[in-house]
């Protein structure tokens, strides 16, 4: 790791101020940033730690509206009783991230700000039609995720929460990379008042995306059988050591079917 200056923010406003130092970066759970710094792939001059800010923590459920503070850990999301009632699919997703020690530290805000193409949360937020709340504005998930490791966040902008309306039905199915435990393919499906959404992570060359073909098939009939004839094209999908684009295309269909079955269960 290169030398770095650490600051512990006392508030979101303080964090925003500290972020103006040099090439500063926000530090939340650090589960991605610190390994990247250790291998010297990331080299921020300053770190602004927001992980202890109470104002960024916790899950709130009010009616169908769910709000999760950006510094809420995966563990806390996965075990939150209110969330397990309102949107169990999201709690389940959080329980599949990394490993237990990683889930104790990693946060939802950190995960979506990083927008790793194989991360789990982006699929959920896209399928849930969630809104990402920052210290400056609110951004629809559709507009937030922009390709590999790219988001709509502007310099100095800090995610404070994500919020969404819990859908009637939802589920996430993940086929994990046997080595890294990231998603080779993860599919999050929802059926809510605005219809059906299906978002895919781990597979797209441009990162997380909504699958129009899955959504169209499920819009007519929200049942796994509606996807029996589905042929997912390998075009635009990643191919690597662990999975060819063809294999990923197959997994998208399989995971989508299983997600729908789980959502209906």
């Amino acid at each position: 790791m290169y030398s770095v200056n650490y600051h512990r923010a006392s508030s979101v406003a303080d964090a925003a101020k500290q972020l103006k130092n040099g090439d500063a970066k926000l530090l939340s759970g650090g589960m991605t940033l610190i390994p990247a710094m250790k291998t010297r792939l990331a080299a921020p001059s300053d770190l602004v730690d927001v992980s202890r800010l109470k104002e960024l923590q916790g899950v709130k459920v009010s009616g169908k509206t769910v709000t999760i503070g950006a510094a809420t850990t995966h563990y806390d999301v996965s075990t939150d009783e209110k969330l397990k009632k309102a949107c169990p699919a999201l709690a389940h997703l959080a329980s599949l991230i990394g490993d237990p020690a990683v889930r104790y530290k990693g946060t939802i805000g950190g995960s979506i700000a990083n927008n790793d193409p194989a991360a789990d949360y982006p699929a959920a937020l896209l399928a849930l039609g969630a809104t990402i709340v920052t210290n400056k504005r609110e951004i629809a998930a559709e507009k937030f995720f922009k390709g590999l490791f790219e988001t709509a966040l502007k310099e100095g902008e800090i995610i404070t929460a994500v919020t969404f309306t819990a859908p009637a039905k939802a589920a996430y199915q993940k086929f994990r990379n046997p080595a890294s435990r990231y998603a080779i393919v993860g599919v999050f499906v929802t059926k809510g008042k605005d219809g059906v959404r299906a978002a895919v992570t781990g597979a797209g060359e441009d990162g997380v995306f909504r699958s129009k073909e899955i959504e169209a098939a499920l819009a007519k009939n929200f049942d796994a059988s509606a996807l029996d004839a589905l042929k997912v094209s390998a075009k635009g999908l990643m191919g690597d050591l662990h999975a060819s684009a063809d294999y990923r295309a197959n997994l998208i269909a399989v995971m989508a079917k299983r997600a729908v079955a789980a959502a209906n269960a």
């Binding site: 650490y6 512990r8 530090l27 650090g30 589960m31 610190i34 390994p35 250790k38 770190l47 730690d49 992980s51 563990y75 490993d99 237990p100 020690a101 990683v102 104790y104 530290k105 890294s180 435990r181």
Partner: peptide
């Protein structure tokens, strides 16, 4: 890469990877 877990310690009652946390943090 924060995977092997040989470094796990308890920080404030939770088992975390001490190789993926700064001392100052």
């Amino acid at each position: 890469t924060s995977q092997c877990g040989a470094c796990v310690v308890h920080v404030d009652g939770r088992a975390v990877k001490s190789c993926t946390m700064l001392a100052v943090q």
